[in-house]
């Protein structure tokens, strides 16, 4: 079994980019995403649970990223209001030579901008549901919300995105706010907060 230092080293090198990408979906800001991942790594490895194996450590770090974000990872508001003045209007993060076809980049940017308009909890619900492919019940469990609240957030989020993007769909072309998932029959009661 590897030491926690070895696991940390391997996790950062092999999964660091994926973790930053995940955090970016929540923050919409690359530097905040990097800070969020570093803080989540510190929290996870300090606790020491499941940190000897990279796979389990990554799961804990993702959870820490999410809870840290939802618990109040806030962006500086004044900067947000003037940020558009400082950047050349291009893809951010940079598209670079590895960028995909033009229509993919356009869609990404449009979705990115629409995502930025969502409140933190709504955004977290949308990412867990559509990026992590969790069931509504699982989203509720992760965020310590009721199933009803998650359904409402997903509905609100979908409506907000559709107002900017037109129709949106989930995996396999299903409606994006469709709460029905193969595992959704396994609903769990609300967990005390």
């Amino acid at each position: 079994m590897a030491s926690w230092e070895d696991a940390l080293d391997e996790l950062v090198r092999t999964r660091g980019r994926a973790l930053v990408g995940y955090a970016y979906l929540l923050t919409g800001d690359l530097r905040e995403a990097e800070d969020l991942v570093q803080d989540a790594l510190v929290r996870t490895f300090t606790r020491g649970r499941g940190t000897r194996e990279v796979v389990s450590a990554e799961a804990y770090v993702r959870r820490a990223v999410l809870t840290t974000y939802v618990d109040g990872f806030r962006r500086r508001r004044h900067w947000a209001t003037i940020r558009h003045l400082t950047v050349v209007p291009e893809a951010s993060p940079s598209d670079g030579p590895e960028a995909g076809p033009e229509h993919v980049v356009t869609t990404r940017l449009t979705v990115q901008q629409a995502l930025a308009t969502l409140p933190p909890r709504v955004r977290a619900c949308m990412v867990l549901r559509h990026f992590d492919d969790l069931t509504v019940a699982q989203v509720a469990d992760v965020l310590s919300l009721s199933v009803g609240a998650v359904k409402r957030y997903l509905s609100d989020g979908t409506r907000a995105l559709e107002a900017r993007l037109g129709p949106v769909s989930g995996r396999d072309g299903s409606d994006a706010d469709d709460a029905e998932h193969p595992d959704d029959s396994l609903l769990t009661p609300r967990r005390p907060r």
Binding site: R17, A18, V20, G21, Y22, Y24, L25, L30, A33, A91, P93, S94, D95, G96, E98, A99, G100, V104, T107, R108, T110, V111, Q112, L115, M126, V127, H130, F131, D133, L161, L165, G166, P167, V168, S169, G170, R171, G173, A176
Partner: peptide, 17 residues
């Protein structure tokens, strides 16, 4: 329609790069 799961994956991959 816009496939949210694919778009989110694209966004995360771009940020990772």
């Amino acid at each position: 329609s816009t496939r949210l799961d694919l778009a989110l994956t694209e966004i995360a991959d771009a940020a990772g790069r």
